[in-house]
Design a protein around this nucleic acid. Sequence first.
DNA 1: TCAAGTAGCGTCAGTCACTGACATATGCGG
DNA 2: CCGCATATGTCAGTGACTGACGCTACTTGA
Lengths: 187, 187
Amino acid sequence: MPRSGAEARRRLQQAALELYRERGFDRTTTAEIAARAGLNERTFFRHFPDKREVLFDGEADLRASLVQAVAEAPGDLQPLDLLLHAFRKVEHLLEDNRPFAEPRLEVIAATPALRERDLAKAASIAEAVAGALRQRGVADRSARLAAQIGWATFHQAAQAWIDDPSQSLDAHLLQAFSDLRALCRTP
Amino acid sequence: MPRSGAEARRRLQQAALELYRERGFDRTTTAEIAARAGLNERTFFRHFPDKREVLFDGEADLRASLVQAVAEAPGDLQPLDLLLHAFRKVEHLLEDNRPFAEPRLEVIAATPALRERDLAKAASIAEAVAGALRQRGVADRSARLAAQIGWATFHQAAQAWIDDPSQSLDAHLLQAFSDLRALCRTP
DNA sequence: TCAAGTAGCGTCAGTCACTGACATATGCGG
DNA sequence: CCGCATATGTCAGTGACTGACGCTACTTGA
């Protein structure tokens, strides 16, 4: 068996995704994942802190890119426009990854335990974005609220993009932010 | 030991909250919770499906009350005003229960595993609220977006209420929705 | 009042996620 | 070829959670 480390990590992720799809998350043991990857159960837990985390690896990249995009955005934007600008800068991370991410999203949607983790990751990203907003002088509560609202809108756009691939993610994103503005408008 | 069932359930919740605060969630075993409640570990799992759920009992009530409040709100309100109206109708569920709600929210905020469950409950409630909005004729995407945004705002108000009890939850709620309006305003 | 049914509980054995301690193997620079 | 760091294997253990079975208190109906 290769001794690379990063290679083993990739094999574990692949084996886990396969088994979660074949038998379901609950009927898959960590020992089985490790076995399919040609490794030991103990090694699985050296690469991933728990059975769920094996499917959540790109999250750190997305968060870092978003934080950077917020930090580097033009200075004259107000929070929600700033967030829209930042989301448009990172949407390629999703669009480039679509064929690989689709089975993963299916498994997550079908497994409560994985959906919980997914929500936690989303909250973590929103928190990081709020921090980036604060760095730009946005007041604490406004920053938290804007980050959560912005992420919810982004998430809505991503979901619409999965359901309807005929339009680009960018188009869905603009549509979602337009919906958001319309919601907040007081007639 | 009393044989009531509902009484045992309450003792388990109380014991769990106390122990999670004293030792932390991770250093508390389900056997300890049961022992403090004068019960057996097996009985704990007859009342609650897992170690986290013992702190999430009122969620079903809150969800049902929110859905009802949305359904019964005046007919001429915009989605966000409608949600604010509904939240004000159910905030007494938190204010009346503050001695239990406050330490509970503190423990949840301090424990990643409980935060995950909290986020899952929030998503479930938001989904139900979105359904109630749809029943009132709000378009599907707007309903989902409004429910998530509204809940995020409500949650922010509840957090502020915990951090600063000098003002009522209602005041914090109005403040949070005012912040939301300000965020969406385009100058 | 008592027999029978039922709901809540206890006990036991077992699976599986996860962890610490220690041993072993692999690939590196010297 | 030799130490050394890193990746992995082995073992024993804890604790969450489950199924099966038996016990006990409370209720119900004759």
